[in-house]
Simulated assay, not measured.
Amino acid sequence: MTQTQHAPAASRLFEPARLGSLDLPNRLVMAPLTRNRAGADGVPGELMATYYAQRASAGLIIAEASTPNAVGQSYPHIPGIHTPAQIAGWRRVTEAVRAAGGGGMFLQLQHGGRVGHPETSGQVPLAPSAVRFPERLHTPGGLRDGVVPRAMTAEDIRTTVADFASAARGAVEAGFAGVEVHSANGHLLHQFLARNTNRRTDEWGGSALNRIRFPVEVVRAVAEAIGPERVGVRISPGRDVNGIEEGDTEDIYPALVKALADLAPVYLHQVHADPDQPAYAQIRRDWPGTLIANPALSREEVAADGGKRRGERLLSEGADLVALGRGFLANPDFVERLRTGAPLGEVRPEFLMHVHGAEGYTDYPALGAHERHTGRLSD
C-alpha cells in the first residue's frame, strides 16, 4: 500500500454487540421472514432446521412469525408455537443453529387477527372489531376473499393475552433466547392500534391510550412469563400494509413507546426505519434501550449492496442493530458476502411464499473458498 492509499474504514455492522445477556458477533439481524415451509399442522421440520442453520452467521436471527394459538393462524403452512409437536419442531431448529455456530435466536409471535380465514384455521378470525379484511387471502383451497371477523369479547382478549404468554414459555422451552411480540404490519396487535380496525367503545378502544392497551397487556404478560430481558417488540409506525389506517400515528407511538419502555423489554424493532423521517428520530429519543432498525430497501439497493450503506447510516443515526431481510433469503452467508464485498445472489420471487420444498429456500449456494478469499466469483 502506498503512502496515499488508505485501508477502508471498518464497518460498524460487523462490530460485536450486546443484547441483554447475549453477546452478538455482529450487528446484523436476520429479519423475520414468512416462508410457508412448516407442515400443515404448523410443525417446523428438518427443511426449516437446514434453512436457519445455513444463516447462523447473523448476529441475531429473529425466526419467522409463529402463531400463539390456532385461531391466530393467518396462512397455510406457517409455524405455530402452541402445541408440544410445534415446540419440539422448533427445538430441532434452534439446536441446528447452535450446531452451526449461531447463538442469538428469537422467535416472533404473531396473531393474524382479521388476517385469517376459516379454511386455514378452521375458525372465524378474531379481531378488535367486526371489520372485514379488504384483500384476498391464500388458503388451502386457493385465494379467497377476506371474511368479517368476530369482534373479541373481554374474555377473548384475556385468553389471547394468556396464549401469548404460554407461547413465550414454549419458545424458551424450544431453545430460543427470547421472543419478539409482533405489533406491526396489520396483524392483531396493530389492528388494535389503528382507528379503521379498532372501533371499540370500551377500555380497549377510542383514545390512543385505550388503543395501545391490548398490545401493552400482551407485552406485560409475556415479560412476566419469561422475563423482560427475553422480550422484544416490533412496530411499524404509519405503515398501511394489510389494509391498516392508523389515523393518528403521531399520537399512538409516543404513548406506546413510553408504555413499553416502562416494561423494559430488551429491544424495540422498528419496521421501515428512516432517519430522514421525524418518527425515527422521536422513537430513538423516547426509547431508552436497544433499537433494531429495519430499513425499507428498493430492489436496486438490495442488488447493489444488500442494504449495507443504509444499515451503516442507521447505525450512525442511533440504531444499535440493523435488521435486513431479502439479502438473507438468497445468501445463506450474507454476513460474509457483505464483509468481503462478494457478489450477492438474487432472490427467486416465485419461491418466496405459499410454495413448499427446498427450491428457492435451502438451495441458494454459499461462497466457495476462492470467493471467500478474494471477494470475487471464481472463473
Rank of each mutant, 00 (worst) to 15 (best):
residue 181 V to A: 08
residue 92 R to Q: 15
residue 11 S to F: 04
residue 103 G to W: 07
residue 315 L to E: 08
residue 297 L to A: 08
residue 359 E to N: 08
residue 373 H to Q: 15
residue 225 A to S: 11
residue 368 G to I: 09
residue 154 A to G: 08
residue 318 G to N: 08
residue 191 Q to V: 04
residue 28 L to V: 05
residue 301 E to H: 03
residue 282 Q to F: 01
residue 174 A to N: 11
residue 209 L to K: 05
residue 156 D to V: 04
residue 90 W to P: 11
residue 26 N to G: 07
residue 169 R to L: 11
residue 183 S to P: 01
residue 34 T to H: 07
residue 51 Y to M: 01
residue 297 L to R: 09
residue 145 D to G: 09
residue 198 N to K: 03
residue 213 R to T: 10
residue 184 A to I: 01
residue 7 A to E: 13
residue 269 H to V: 10
residue 349 P to L: 10
residue 138 H to W: 15
residue 61 I to D: 03
residue 150 R to E: 11
residue 163 D to F: 05
residue 351 F to S: 10
residue 187 H to S: 04
residue 316 S to Q: 15
residue 83 T to N: 08
residue 362 T to H: 01
residue 78 I to N: 12
residue 346 E to F: 09
residue 200 R to Y: 03
residue 369 A to N: 03
residue 238 G to Y: 00
residue 311 G to I: 01
residue 347 V to K: 04
residue 241 V to L: 14
residue 320 D to C: 05
residue 235 I to K: 00
residue 193 L to I: 01
residue 223 A to F: 03
residue 187 H to W: 14
residue 318 G to Q: 07
residue 342 A to Y: 06
residue 229 E to M: 01
residue 29 V to M: 05
residue 204 W to K: 03
residue 174 A to S: 13
residue 7 A to I: 14
residue 217 E to D: 15
residue 199 R to L: 15
residue 7 A to T: 12
residue 269 H to G: 03
residue 197 T to P: 05
residue 211 R to I: 13
residue 141 G to I: 13
residue 208 A to C: 06
residue 199 R to I: 12
residue 360 G to P: 00
residue 165 A to D: 10
residue 368 G to P: 11
residue 333 D to E: 05
residue 173 E to M: 05
residue 208 A to H: 09
residue 17 A to K: 13
residue 321 L to M: 07
residue 111 H to V: 02
residue 327 G to H: 02
residue 168 A to C: 12
residue 190 H to T: 09
residue 46 E to A: 15
residue 264 A to P: 07
residue 361 Y to H: 14
residue 207 S to H: 11
residue 267 Y to Q: 14
residue 172 V to N: 12
residue 243 G to C: 08
residue 282 Q to H: 12
residue 67 T to P: 00
residue 68 P to W: 07
residue 45 G to H: 11
residue 290 T to V: 15
residue 181 V to P: 03
residue 270 Q to I: 15
residue 335 V to H: 09
residue 26 N to C: 09
residue 233 V to H: 02
residue 115 V to F: 12
residue 362 T to G: 06
residue 24 L to F: 11
residue 47 L to Q: 14
residue 196 N to H: 10
residue 10 A to F: 08
residue 165 A to V: 06
residue 239 R to P: 00
residue 186 G to C: 13
residue 252 I to E: 00
residue 157 I to S: 08
residue 249 T to E: 04
residue 370 H to G: 12
residue 147 V to N: 12
residue 3 Q to V: 10
residue 327 G to V: 00
